[in-house]
């Protein structure tokens, strides 16, 4: 095990395309639902405990060696919005490119061959963690953190928030991150016995509505 690889994988500068995505924050800002630091924090809390938890569960299961193509199905079933499925696969494809360079590994090559148009990002993330020698809990942390790190960075740009205030949001959500990552890793332990239904399936109606709304906007800074 090589825990330091988690720092590389979870670094916001890891070149996997995330900088152009807001995780729904741009639409929440455009629609006036997020106007300030407090709104950003509530947005992040909701996202973390729904789609963040789902991503963490999928990533932990992939890191535990569960069949990635079955996790692909599980991810589809947990992602009602076609815009979000598209985004997840695009980001998965971009992450796969970066991960194959960082941690060359037969399992990543096999997934790239099976899904040339991209696999769901959390599945790729979990597999990348596995190839980097990380544990399922590490993968869950990376996925959970990413589910709020992206929206925070995007909202700093969109609302010109004080970056210190925005970073404090992430710090305040640390206990929630611990909880989500632990729950995801615990669920992933049950997947070999109970199948993908053991994985979290948290859903947020406004994230689905907003993702489709955002996809129709002609003027936007972020791809999602």
């Amino acid at each position: 095990m090589n825990r330091a690889a988690l720092l590389v994988l979870a670094d916001g500068r890891f070149p996997a395309g995330g900088h152009a995505h807001s995780g729904g924050a741009e639409e929440a800002v455009t629609a006036g639902r997020v106007r300030d630091v407090a709104g950003l924090e509530e947005f992040c809390r909701g996202r973390l405990h729904t789609s963040g938890l789902v991503a963490a569960g999928l990533a932990a299961a992939a890191a535990a060696g569960y069949e990635p193509l079955l996790l692909e199905e599980a991810a589809d079933a947990r992602t009602a919005s076609p815009a979000l499925r598209h985004t997840s696969r695009r980001l998965g494809r971009q992450l796969l490119r970066a991960a194959r360079s960082a941690w060359p590994c037969a399992e990543l090559e096999a997934l790239a061959a099976a899904r040339p148009r991209g696999a769901h990002q959390p599945v790729v993330l979990g597999l990348a963690a596995r190839c980097a020698g990380l544990m399922p809990l590490d993968a869950a942390y990376a996925a959970a953190y990413e589910s709020i790190g992206g929206p925070v960075t995007a909202t700093v740009r969109l609302l010109r928030l004080d970056p210190f205030d925005a970073t404090a949001v992430l710090a305040r959500l640390a206990a929630d991150l611990d909880h989500v990552a632990a729950a995801a890793a615990e669920a992933a332990q049950r997947i070999h016995a109970d199948g993908p239904a053991a994985l979290p399936a948290g859903s947020a109606p406004l994230l689905d509505i907003a993702a489709e709304q955002h996809a129709t906007r002609a003027a936007r800074l972020f791809a999602s």
């Binding site: 709104g39 947005f43 992040c44 809390r45 909701g46 405990h49």
Partner: peptide
């Protein structure tokens, strides 16, 4: 036998962020 849809929604006390801008607002 294949998963088609799996959604878990939580509202009210104990559901973090449930009334916030990502979920029910």
């Amino acid at each position: 036998g294949r998963p088609l849809l799996d959604q878990h929604t939580m509202y009210g006390p104990g559901a973090p962020g449930w009334d916030g801008p990502a979920i029910a607002a």
